[in-house]
Nucleic acid binder design. Structure first.
Length: 181
DNA sequence: GAGCCGATATTCT
DNA sequence: GAATATCGGCTCC
């Protein structure tokens, strides 16, 4: 069991420390990915869903650290975040990408293809079987979706975030060496 | 390989 | 009514 305090802090500080951790999904078969790409979203950040306060969609973003926040992107894809703020503070890290380490067949079946299994936020959710019903899950508790600490990558690069139009210059995207797509 | 486009839930103006 | 923390399929070099 991970010490929840390891996930509590400013999203931009916690985000890079999540690189190398593993996300485990045990539903229709076991699938595990190593996290290789993340982005930070903080309450004072105009690009964050939490910036204007909680809404029905974003309420889990204001929970304690280690909670899964899942939202629908462009009305089509699911995207998964891990909360990092103390309860009441809307702060989270978007899981943008990972590499399969276990259960590759399970991921291929969910994705309907054998390449690009989890190299994007929507793809990662589909490969892991994460959807709206999983919003609010405690990733540090025993369950079908869990987060496990792993060794940090040899290095990582820092870049501006992808696909946003506000606060575009904040260097809050972190990609493990060798995984910049 | 680069670029356009459609799908469409939630929120904001 | 418009924008968005995306993706995959299509076109046209």
């Amino acid at each position: 069991m991970i010490d929840r305090a390891r996930l509590e802090g400013h999203a931009a500080e916690v985000a890079p420390s999540l690189l190398g951790w593993r996300l485990v999904s045990e539903r229709d078969g076991r699938a595990v990915v190593t996290i290789t790409e993340v982005e930070a979203y903080a309450p004072e950040d105009p690009a964050s869903h939490s910036h204007r306060g909680p809404t029905p969609r974003t309420r889990s973003m204001f929970g304690p650290p280690g909670i899964l926040y899942v939202y629908r992107s462009y009305g089509i894809h699911w995207c998964a975040n891990v909360t990092t703020g103390p309860t009441g503070v809307g702060s989270a890290v978007l899981l943008r990408g990972g590499v399969p380490v276990e259960g590759r067949e399970v991921m291929e079946r969910r994705r309907g293809r054998s390449d690009h299994l989890a190299d994007g936020p929507g793809k990662l959710c589909q490969a892991m079987g994460i959807e709206g019903a999983d919003d609010g899950t405690d990733l540090l508790a025993a369950g079908a979706l869990r987060l496990e600490a792993g060794p940090p990558p040899a290095g990582y690069i820092t870049t501006p975030r992808i696909g946003i139009s506000r606060a575009v210059d904040l260097p809050w995207r972190f990609v493990a060496d060798g995984h910049l797509s």
